[in-house]
Amino acid sequence: MGFIEEFKSKNFTIYAQWAGLLSIPFLFIAGGVAFLAFFLFSIIAWILAFILIFVEVPLCMKICPTSPKFDAFIKIFENNYLRTIGYLLFSVVIFIFASKSGIYILPGLSLAITGICYGIAALKHQNHASSTLTGGSGV
């Protein structure tokens, strides 16, 4: 199944995965911009981006050497309900910093959209699917 067919499938886990992937560069950029002015936000944003890389790109878990503890931590996010909670919590953390500067709104918004998409997928009882472009099995 190709990229276009995955988006036409109406599987909200695919939409959420791509929104989550979009969050990663937003977090890296916002963390970089805030590095000198707000160091704590930068560290939190980069840690979240690093975690999201492993959560949203299944290929990374296959090719990168990781510890069993890290693998167990990432496996927590296999369930759509737990991904919803995780992304919404990540979003709240980022929005807490948004009161300091407007640059933090974009990563927080993309994380919230991702959480909402995973929530819709969970409510519709859709199985988690990863895009074939990221090393997943597709829909």
Rank of each mutant, 00 (worst) to 15 (best):
G2E: 11
G2D: 15
E5F: 14
T13D: 09
Q17W: 05
L22K: 06
L22F: 14
S23E: 04
L27M: 08
F28D: 00
F28P: 00
I29M: 09
G31E: 09
F35I: 01
A37Q: 14
F38G: 01
L40F: 14
L40Q: 13
F41E: 02
S42L: 11
I43L: 15
I44E: 06
W46P: 00
I47Q: 12
I47G: 10
I47E: 06
A49T: 01
F50K: 02
I51Q: 11
L52K: 02
L52A: 02
F54G: 01
V57P: 03
L59V: 06
C60N: 08
S67F: 04
K69S: 07
D71Q: 14
I74A: 12
K75R: 15
K75P: 01
K75V: 00
I76M: 11
E78Y: 14
N80S: 15
N80H: 11
N80F: 09
Y81H: 11
L82N: 09
R83D: 02
T84C: 14
I85N: 01
G86K: 05
Y87Q: 09
L89S: 14
L89C: 14
F90S: 13
F90E: 03
V92T: 03
F95S: 08
F97T: 00
A98V: 04
S99Q: 05
K100E: 06
K100N: 09
K100I: 14
S101H: 12
S101Q: 07
Y104R: 09
I105A: 07
P107K: 07
G108M: 04
L109R: 02
S110H: 03
L111D: 03
L111F: 06
G115P: 04
C117Q: 13
C117K: 08
Y118K: 04
I120L: 08
I120V: 12
A121E: 01
L123T: 04
H125E: 13
Q126V: 01
H128S: 01
A129C: 10
T132C: 08
T132D: 05
L133V: 06
G135Q: 05
G138H: 13
